[in-house]
Design a binder for these strands. Sequence first.
DNA 1: ATGCACCCTGTAGCAACTACAGGGTCAAGA
DNA 2: TCTTGACCCTGTAGTTGCTACAGGGTGCAT
Lengths: 136, 136
Amino acid sequence: MKIGELSRATGTNIETIRYYERIGLLPAPHRTAANYRSYGDPHRARLTFVRHSRDLGFTIEEIRSLLDLSDDPARDCSEADRIASRHLAQVEDKIAQLTLLRDELTRIVGCCRGGVAADCRVIEALGDHGSCAGAH
Amino acid sequence: MKIGELSRATGTNIETIRYYERIGLLPAPHRTAANYRSYGDPHRARLTFVRHSRDLGFTIEEIRSLLDLSDDPARDCSEADRIASRHLAQVEDKIAQLTLLRDELTRIVGCCRGGVAADCRVIEALGDHGSCAGAH
DNA sequence: ATGCACCCTGTAGCAACTACAGGGTCAAGA
DNA sequence: TCTTGACCCTGTAGTTGCTACAGGGTGCAT
């Protein structure tokens, strides 16, 4: 299939596909006589893997490691587990952090009762970290 | 005070301070005879405002708007409230999204029982979006 | 033959910094 | 007086993960 079909089949931007090839995340496919890229099912599966992993927030480098693992079926999979677990921990950290942020923002937004900027609690709160309830 | 002191006083990287000046977020300070930047309290207050807003996740452009507002104390502060509320909504979206992600990752990670990559559930799950519990 | 959709390469842009390279300045100690 | 070290300056390039051109070629239908 041509790059446009692969793009539609995986929901990936064409530019992104070429980008993945450039950085070595996807192998360079065969070319037609007209120098068009020509993909097969293995390419589509690999790109699906990459997109799914990106959707789950894995970095390109993490995906590279995961692909290396899946390319070598004999290898121990504990590294895959380690990568995924570490990522999970990062996501949990991020959630905790954003929750603190949300609470702080809720507090700040709730203070605004209209009026002029000089009396605005939002602006005041932003200028004064000391008035924050928690750390962030 | 010199840039290093301002840096320590606000917990901001020196390069970042110069960057903020370059993009017009902080006004250019006076210079000493040796061409060193020389800051006063208003600069420190403004930078504190910027850092605090960044810590809360506001973008540079949002901060620019907020600073414009605080520079003009007679203006109506409803825009500040609007910016902060929209940002709060974004944070809430992000939390919801990350929570789905976390659940998916938890599910994936929990499946790994060791062994070789060929049988790895982590790798399998990443290659197959269809096996996901929810949308992400 | 002439549109039009598609493909190619290469480069530059985005956010919000961060990290040099290659130089100048200043105060303290030997 | 000299030198060491901490600090400051400008300007440019790198980071992540794409995205958006510019300027061209290809393939098929009308």
